[in-house]
Nucleic acid binder design. Structure first.
Lengths: 201, 201
DNA sequence: CGTACTCTTGATTTCACTCAATTCAGGTGG
DNA sequence: CCACCTGAATTGAGTGAAATCAAGAGTACG
């Protein structure tokens, strides 16, 4: 176990490369994505501190991970890690729990991508991000470290559509833009209603 | 561990209910889905024999599972199962592996739902189903036990679009319809090309 | 056979995408 | 400190892929 650093924009792991390490995010935020041959990109998730990165037991990483802001990570070498497992049966259990949580989130995301409208997707995302990061910030206040392009690629939309939907939410007074990357959510319930909240992760 | 039976159309587990059992599919096929409050449905996966069902370690099931055809399952009671775990450390490891495989599949599905066209989605699905079931059938031949509506809800499309894309593939001579639920894939490579194959699960 | 599905095909609409300007914010250098 | 530059975000106009609406054509089943 070693502590590592990456600057904003740097790649931490690459899709297809041999999975040699497992990480735990200490600070900063990370995006995970997969690319199609023609450049289309789908962001499969964002990581916040305490999240695991690279749980795949397979030989190779299934996605690329890139630092959104400067990040600090704990790095577990896979070789040493395998030797640790018998001594820490609890670790394997914790990994299974983490994998199950990720799996549930992935299934929610499939519903979002397959069946929700653009506005519902954005509302859903803002709410989800608010819930995940609210420990670090004041309630009713959200910081979005990722770009509009990242949000678009996470929601299966274009930047223009994300921008338009954000404007709609702003006009409906459901959110207020404090700055480009910060917004206030005075009534999370109203946002939840627009997200068709039943499945919101 | 008990063997159970369900008839086509019957629900095996329900989204939101307490997760009391874990299953392993012995025969038949199963669909997993989540519903939005207004009835929109997203099928998050299909199960074939040897797949696990209900790996969630959470308190409640994350989705509903319904038998497509008559199915046989091995049922592991969660209470007894917990007691078994210390005796079978290998089982937890196998579950983690299964969860990781599912997670990778879920990520591929996110790319499909977020960034692929209708035609690419169908081509991708046919190829994927062909690979998963080819052990039971002759190569170049696919049996689709699920309805068009199920396929549509898996691919984030409508039945009409699925039907139209199937017609396109037929006209392009990439597939041949043997019957409503059986089709021939003479040149899987051509199908892979249409699916933009790089990420095909 | 007729009934009730499921599936296919056609016509039209719509939501999100594409293309094209602006506008805005953050940094740089005069 | 302010003007300029650059990339990101917003806004607008027009297009397009898939959805919706609406018939028909097959299929299974009593």
């Amino acid at each position: 176990m070693v502590t590592t650093r990456f600057s904003a924009g740097e790649s931490i792991i690459h899709e297809g490369e041999p999975a040699t390490a497992l990480f735990n995010l200490v600070s900063g935020s990370v995006k995970l994505y997969k690319l199609l041959s023609d450049g289309r990109r789908q962001i499969t998730g964002f990581l916040v501190p305490s999240d695991f990165l690279g749980i795949a037991l397979n030989k190779n990483y299934a996605y690329t991970a890139e630092a959104i802001e400067d990040v600090h990570l704990c790095r577990f070498d896979r070789l040493k890690f395998g030797a640790l497992l018998p001594e820490l049966p609890n670790l394997e259990h914790r990994l299974l729990e983490a994998a199950c949580t990720e799996l549930a989130a992935a299934q929610d995301q499939m519903v979002l991508l397959g069946r929700r409208t653009a506005l519902e997707r954005l509302a859903s995302f803002l709410l989800q991000w608010h819930r995940r990061t609210t420990v670090h910030h004041k309630p009713g206040h959200v910081v979005l470290p990722m770009s509009r392009s990242d949000i678009a690629d996470y929601l299966g939309l274009t930047i223009e559509t994300v921008s338009r939907c954000l404007t709609l939410l702003k006009k409906a007074k459901v959110v207020q833009l404090v700055s480009r990357s910060e917004l206030a959510i005075p009534y999370p319930d109203k946002l939840a209603a627009m997200a068709d909240c039943d499945t919101a992760a």
